[in-house]
């Protein structure tokens, strides 16, 4: 395994709550890693730690072998690790194209070059028809794609996707999954939090399962999905036994 991202013994405590407890895992280059677990499992906190929004009480994170622990989120993004948000956050006074152009400006000072790159990215995510539309009027599905396009505009090596299928209508889920695969095929490593386990299992190379801030399973999607601890985490001990 050639890990591009490594999380080592990370712990986070919010007052009396242990949000993450000694979590460790590695993500191989060009892998799609799914992160699953019920609400409150610590998935979003884990994302926060990786991308620098949350500073861990213990442990470290490494990107391509270099420590990114304690760095600010903008520094980490400049290193090539970019996130999307659970609730998409487009720049609402801008058009779709301007949103992605801004992202592409992380790689160039030339607005014309950034704009052309943004057009390419919007085309890749299936939003080429929306270039000049204001992003304030975007549907949830379009916002999700725009969020991904914006992240891709920065040309990341690792992309953290927080519930990319959340709010997407069932008919568009297959398209979204195909998009995620295409992104991986272009050499981007994906770490995906998702509650649609069936869909995630279809594209992930590996899953880690979490509950109450701890990693409880790590392995092939089929193995993790059939792991009793994950079933109990979602359904509770009584229901799982039934």
């Amino acid at each position: 395994m050639n890990p591009i991202l490594r999380v080592e013994n990370v712990s986070v405590r919010f007052g009396g709550l242990q949000a993450l407890g000694d979590v460790s895992f590695a993500v191989a280059n060009n892998e799609i890693l799914g992160v699953v677990g019920p609400n409150g499992a610590g998935k979003s906190t884990l994302f926060g730690v990786i991308c620098g929004d949350v500073h861990p009480d213990a442990g470290s994170t490494l990107l391509a072998g270099k420590s990114i622990t304690g760095k600010s989120s903008d520094e980490i993004a400049r290193s090539g690790l970019v996130r999307t948000f659970q609730t998409p956050r487009p720049f609402t006074t801008m058009t779709f194209l301007e949103n992605v152009t801004l992202a592409a400006l992380t790689k160039t000072n030339d607005v014309a070059i950034a704009r052309e790159r943004a057009r390419l990215v919007l085309d890749q995510v299936g939003l080429s028809d929306c270039c000049d539309r204001p992003s304030s009027g975007a549907s949830t599905g379009q916002r999700k794609r725009l969020d991904i396009a914006r992240a891709l505009g920065t040309e990341p090596s690792v992309l953290l996707l927080d519930e990319p299928l959340g709010g997407v209508d069932p008919g568009s889920i297959a398209d979204m999954l195909a998009l995620l695969k295409r992104i991986r095929d272009r050499g981007v490593t994906l770490v995906v939090i998702e509650h649609n386990l069936e869909a995630l299992t279809g594209i992930a190379d590996r899953l880690i399962a979490m509950t109450l801030g701890k990693k409880i399973a790590d392995g092939a999607p089929k193995d993790v999905m059939s792991d009793d601890r994950l079933v109990r985490a979602y359904l509770g001990d009584d229901d799982a036994a039934a």
Binding site: S72, F91, T92, T93, L102, T106, V111, A151, G153
Partner: peptide
């Protein structure tokens, strides 16, 4: 210019701008 794009981004959502790699 690039400065204008980033400033407008900050006006809309400062955290989102930071998440892209701008200070």
């Amino acid at each position: 210019s690039k400065i204008g794009f980033v400033l407008k981004g900050i006006r809309d959502d400062e955290d989102a701008v930071r998440s892209l790699g701008f200070s």
